[in-house]
C-alpha cells in the first residue's frame, strides 16, 4: 500500500524522505518543479489544493502503470480546517466596503472538496469524490468511512487521507491508495503514517 506524508518541512514517500531545501509554500513549489512540472494549473490553486495535489502526484507516481480515466477509483479526503485558509483570504477581499474586490478565482476555493475535484480532473477519475471534516484527526473514523465506501460496487480503490491546511505555511497531509481487498488498511496503519 503506497503512502505519502507531506508536512511544512518534510516529504516522506513510503517511508523514504524526499530531500527538500525549503519549507511551507516554497517547499510545495520546489517539489512541484522537481517531481511534477507538467501541470501549470498548480500555480492557480489555493494552498489546500497545492498541498493535496502534490501529495496525490507523489502517491500516484508510485503506481505502475499509473491508472487514469476510470470510474473505479474514489477520492475521499478528510481534514479539520475545511477550506478556512482560503476562506480567510476571501474574507480579506470583502472585509472593508472601501476596499472591496471579491474575486471568483479566490471564492471558488472556499470549498474543501475542490481538491477532490482537482485530483479527479488531473487523472480523469469519474468515480466518487467525498470530503468530510472532523474536529480532530481520527484514524478510526477515516478507516470506517473508507471501508464503507466500498459498498459502492463501482469503487475498486480509494485515494484517501488527511489534507489539512491551517495557513499557507502550517499544513499536513498524509495520503494513501487503498485497494478493495487491502488487508493492511487499519486505523493503526493510518496512525503510523
Amino acid at each position: 500500500m503506497n503512502w505519502v506524508r507531506v508536512r511544512k518541512d518534510s516529504v516522506v514517500i513510503n517511508g523514504n524522505m524526499l530531500a527538500t531545501e525549503s519549507t511551507g509554500q516554497a517547499m510545495l513549489k520546489e517539489v512541484y518543479k522537481k517531481c511534477i512540472g507538467d501541470y501549470p494549473k498548480f500555480f492557480k490553486m489555493d494552498a489546500l489544493c497545492r498541498l493535496g495535489f502534490v501529495a496525490s502526484e507523489l502517491l500516484l507516481q508510485q503506481e505502475s502503470p499509473r491508472v487514469v480515466n476510470t470510474e473505479h477509483r474514489a477520492v475521499i479526503l478528510f481534514n479539520r480546517s475545511s477550506s478556512l485558509c482560503d476562506d480567510r483570504n476571501y474574507q480579506e477581499t470583502i472585509q472593508d466596503s472601501d476596499n472591496f474586490f471579491p474575486s471568483p478565482a479566490v471564492f471558488v476555493y472556499t470549498l474543501p472538496n475542490i481538491i477532490t475535484g482537482e485530483i479527479s480532473i488531473r487523472n480523469k477519475y469519474y468515480g466518487e469524490t467525498l470530503f468530510a471534516v472532523l474536529k480532530q484527526f481520527d484514524a478510526r473514523e477515516i478507516h470506517d468511512i473508507v471501508c464503507e465506501a466500498f459498498l459502492d460496487s463501482m469503487t475498486l480503490d480509494v485515494i484517501t487521507g488527511w489534507v489539512d491546511c491551517e495557513s499557507d505555511d502550517d499544513f499536513e497531509a498524509c495520503m494513501l491508495l487503498v485497494a478493495r481487498d487491502e488487508n493492511n488498511f487499519t486505523p493503526e496503519f493510518i496512525n503510523e503514517i
Binding site: 475545511s82 470549498l111 474543501p112 472538496n113 475542490i114 477532490t116 469524490t129 467525498l130 470530503f131 468530510a132 471534516v133 472532523l134 473514523e141 470506517d144 468511512i145 471501508c147 464503507e148 465506501a149 459498498l151
Partner: peptide
Amino acid sequence: IVVSNACISGLCAQIVAMRGIES
C-alpha cells in the same frame, strides 16, 4: 461527521448515513 461537498453535501451525508447503517 461533517460532510462538506459543496452543493451535493445533503445527498453525500445521506449516502454516508446509509452506508454506516448498511455496514
